[in-house]
Design a protein around this nucleic acid. Structure first.
Lengths: 234, 234
DNA sequence: CGTGCGCTTGACTTTTTTCAATAAAGGTGG
DNA sequence: CCACCTTTATTGAAAAAAGTCAAGCGCACG
């Protein structure tokens, strides 16, 4: 697949006329990263933005004492570092490859002028930003208003529903990373997996998780705490 | 001040040609709310978006057991409920007037077509969304990676710096609401105010807060925890 | 075949919340 | 103007949730 074809399959570039795709193909830089490579760090000058072609990228913050909070895990077709497109900006978080990844890089200046010229590109960008904003809303709600068991239940339900409601899941990230995504630490996550297993909600075997009691998990995920109804869950 | 003049002073509409402002003035609905009025609730159908003209609006989530997390507190010129502009969407949070407020409402359909026709409107919208995204990034980092004393220190420093570094602050929201904004509860916040006061960092008198030791507060806000250096702060 | 990393578990500590009671402040109607 | 009532703020004691520290296991990878 050539560059223009690849570009045309990216949601952000949907509906772009051929000539603009060609123009994009002239400014794009095709980059490869291996697991653990840092793409940019928080505070780096925003020299452009990126789109994942293959592989997996995590965007994350780190506290002074080393705790990590993952903001996003991005897969094929998803952009990141878009903040670089705004005036004089620095990246507000770190970006690291979680697997061998292929990334397209778009330098700030030529891309910014493209977006100014092409209304449908601007509208696509707006759509993506709205989506991001919504994701963050959910994350804030989750971190502030839900405890860790509930956040894990949410995540398992999400994984299940994303695959059409299957009960056999396979985590595609290490549990340590999942802890960082859910805003906790590996020890706590491990204990909650153990407790859910003991209660017959799930069964785990390494990265494979089987949901045994979908209903109870869903209750935990959505319902008001009614210990009297549910029994002492945690 | 007439409607068109008022519209022209709103950041989102900066750079719009006169005729488009006039067009906007034809679709806008001028609304008034008093303290405590609900503008929309989470899950309501997004029928349009709003801009604060005067007063103060909070956007917030509520957990099943009633705890509230404020996502934003918006003042004059700031838009909210923009998510309504995307396809079939529901408001993802609640909006409530914190004071007597005047709000402009823009119905979804006519506004969406305006944004499609006017590139500079689209670009202004992109800028606002980027800004929001950045705010949320900071909030997630704060909730996940910092404890409550640090979040309060951050907030006080922020208030101080916003006013050019003054040391005498006046909270413009009740402490209960501040607790909800910082992701905690009034009791916890109250205890931390008391502790900071006892340590000579601040002095409080109702909503008035005087920063006595800006440096120590800033340390708390930014620095790595080094108990050995700082002494037992909390 | 060892080294290291990811994962788990136990014991303990810290942070934050919960529950309950009380005090102070602010607005309203008599 | 004052009494009353509601809202907001504070404080103590206890409980719960999550994090820290430390140790140990097992599997993958060089």
């Amino acid at each position: 697949m050539n560059i223009v074809e690849t570009l045309s399959s990216i949601p952000l570039f949907l509906g772009l006329p051929e000539n603009q795709l060609v123009e994009l193909s002239r400014i794009v830089v095709d980059k490869r990263f291996k697991r653990g490579d840092i793409i940019f760090s928080e505070g780096d000058e925003g020299i452009g933005f990126y789109i994942v072609i293959s592989g997996k990228i995590k965007i994350y913050k780190i506290s002074p004492d080393g705790k990590e909070q993952i903001l996003h895990i991005l897969g094929a077709g998803e952009p990141f570092g878009e903040i670089a497109l705004m005036g004089e900006q620095f990246y507000p978080a770190h970006a690291e490859a979680m697997d061998k990844s292929r990334i397209f890089f778009f330098p700030k200046v030529p891309f910014a002028s493209l977006i100014k010229q092409n209304p449908s590109l601007a509208l696509n960008m707006i759509a993506i930003l709205f989506f991001r904003l919504h994701e963050f809303t959910v994350m804030i709600e989750s971190l502030s208003l839900k405890d860790v068991p509930t956040r894990l239940a949410d995540y398992l339900i999400y994984l299940s529903e994303r695959n059409g409601g299957v009960s056999e899941l396979k985590l595609d990230i290490p549990k340590t990373q999942l802890a960082n995504l859910l805003g906790t630490i590996p020890e706590t996550l491990s204990r909650i997996f153990a407790k859910m297993t003991k209660q017959g909600l799930i069964k785990t075997d390494g990265p494979n998780i089987k949901i045994l009691d979908y209903h109870a998990l869903k209750e935990l995920s959505t319902a008001e705490k009614r210990l009297s109804d549910i029994g002492e869950l945690f």
